[in-house]
Design a protein around this nucleic acid. Structure first.
Length: 487
RNA sequence: GGGGACGUAGGUUAGCAUGGCAUACUGCCAGCCUCGGGCGCUGGAGAUCGUGGGUUCAAAUCCCAUCGUUCCCA
């Protein structure tokens, strides 16, 4: 007993030593996903899909309350349609997959595999929207998008096909549409922080980084433990750019013909990647209880056949109680592996709570509950498992708190170009610095320091104070954006 | 956008310089085992050496191409 075990069953590198390799191992060995035999594509396994379903459920509830309804769009988009908004098309063209053959014959109007659905959705909206009474129109689509990734693919973060949702709305007035885009950003922030326990900065993208075709783009950005920023979700105010290109018009109350004001917004399974990076440790995943496929695993421990019966019975009884209480539980009754193996296994898979039930526990009428996030085991009565639910809540809150602390540690401010560069080349992280607003200064930081403007925070945090000078040119600063190297 | 590295059993890998029977561990299967932190024992199955082509009596090994993975720097 007590051997260290084979090196390659668990994760073989430490998170702090080789973050990239650690991430890939954490994703693959924990059973979330695996590589597919297609470049840049992954296969979601049940645990990974379950996490996605939890995210989806959390989002769907919030969308539904906002009057958004789900629909379905085809994956094929005719080139002629995609090209109607020229700037939009040009932005996506380099990474579009094209279908040029259908069975035995050439396709005249090439078909794109959707990189995003604005073109298709709004060509439909133009049919459906005729009157101010048809507005607002709010729809959401759970599907996949395809963007050809030439290199540097990474599970969940950068894949050629990814699961996401894209919401598309149309409104009668500009203010209403802008408020919609803003409200969606809040929904995303809430899901990221309250469900996945990943803190974010919400705000505007610079013009250089906005969605092609949008008037402006808002986004939530998180910082990963390696100091790189990760875009967690975007919400675009499209103005009338697309309604004009796709002819989304309506008659207002005064019988005047107007173009609709639109928004689109989306989050992808990238959220799962962020969750892995932010919370995982040397042992593997650490899943926030709200998305954990299994929230508590029961491990029966016994030596003799006699003990076995009593122990398994007690474990199953406790599991039944937990299920009644709404806890997602699993009893690990595998006989071919030892309890020690099971402990390691479930830790790698990130299950928030492990409940040990052995002969000692059965005699004392309790079970030993251990948290994935550490700390002493707690004895909980076998006949009353209500404490487990509380512990899950505590873990969820504790994970967000810990992540907020690390987020703060990875945030800094700079007032000169040299300081931005020093910070970017040092530990990285989110660097708040004054900026005049010019694309030239933004460009210089990106080219020289490798840090781009990830987001201009909402509210006071994103505004430069009276006398502040642009960190790059020394001119009058207008904003305090967050600079960072990004994924 | 630029530059490296690596593809051999499910996983990790030895062998490659100097061409000549395919290594090990782990996992898997069967049986045993007093299984509270990757326990131990016995037996067994598992490989078109990423793919395609070339050189050769002979290719995992040398050459070319291609696909995939990965790392670093814009």
């Amino acid at each position: 007993m007590g051997g260290k075990g084979p090196a390659d069953v668990g994760i073989t590198v430490r998170k702090g030593d080789n973050f990239s390799e650690w991430y890939t191992q954490a994703v693959v060995k924990s059973g979330l996903a695996d590589y597919a035999p297609v470049k840049g594509a992954i296969v979601l396994r049940p645990d990974g899909y379950s996490v996605w379903e939890s995210v989806r459920k959390a989002l769907d509830g919030r969308l539904s309350r906002r009057g958004v309804r789900n629909g379905f769009l085809p994956v094929l988009i005719p080139e002629s349609l995609l090209k109607r908004e020229g700037e939009h098309f040009a932005g996506f063209d380099p990474e579009v997959f094209w279908v040029t053959r259908a069975g035995g014959s050439e396709v005249g109007d090439r078909l794109a595999l959707r990189p995003t659905s604005e073109a298709l959705a709004y060509s439909m909206y133009s049919k459906w929207i005729k009157s101010w009474r048809d507005l607002p129109l709010r729809m959401n689509f759970w599907n996949t998008a395809l963007r050809a990734e030439i290199k540097a693919t990474k599970p969940f973060l950068r894949t050629s096909e990814f699961l996401w949702q894209e919401g598309h709305t149309a409104h009668a007035g500009r203010e209403e549409a802008e408020a919609e885009a803003e409200a969606m950003l809040d929904v995303y922030r809430e899901v990221s922080e309250e469900v996945l326990a990943v803190p974010v900065v919400a705000g505007r993208k610079s013009d250089a980084e906005k969605f092609v075709g949008a008037v402006y783009t808002s986004a939530i950005e998180a910082v990963m433990p390696d100091g790189k920023a990760l875009q967690m979700g975007t919400s675009h105010f499209l103005g009338q750019n697309f309604s004009k290109a796709f002819d989304v018009r309506f008659l207002d109350r005064s019988n005047a013909e107007r173009f609709a004001w639109q928004t689109s917004w989306g989050v992808s399974w990238r959220l799962i990647g962020a969750m892995v990076m932010v919370h995982g440790d040397d042992k593997g995943l650490v899943l926030p209880p709200r998305v954990a496929p299994v929230q508590a695993v029961l491990v029966p421990i016994y030596y003799s056949g006699e003990d076995r019966r009593a122990v398994v019975e007690a474990a199953e009884g406790a599991a039944a109680l937990l299920e009644e209480g709404g806890v997602r539980v699993h009893v690990d009754s595998r006989e071919e592996v030892t309890p020690g193996f099971k402990f390691h296994d479930w830790e790698m898979r990130g299950v928030p709570l492990r409940i040990e039930v052995g002969p000692r526990d059965v005699r004392s009428g309790t079970a030993a509950v251990a948290r994935r996030t550490g700390g002493a085991k707690e004895d909980v009565p076998l006949g009353d498992m209500s404490r487990v639910g509380e512990m899950l809540e505590e873990i969820q809150a504790g994970m967000l708190e810990a992540a907020r602390k690390r987020h703060a540690e990875l945030s800094s401010s700079a007032s000169t170009y040299g300081e931005i560069r020093g910070a970017a080349e040092g530990g990285g992280g989110l660097i708040s610095a004054p900026w005049c607003g010019s694309p030239e200064c933004e460009r210089k930081v990106k080219d020289g320091a490798g840090a781009e403007i990830r987001v201009i925070p909402r509210g006071a945090a994103g505004e430069a104070s009276g006398g502040e000078a642009c960190a790059v040119c020394g001119g009058r600063a207008r904003h305090r954006p967050v600079f960072a190297r990004g994924y």
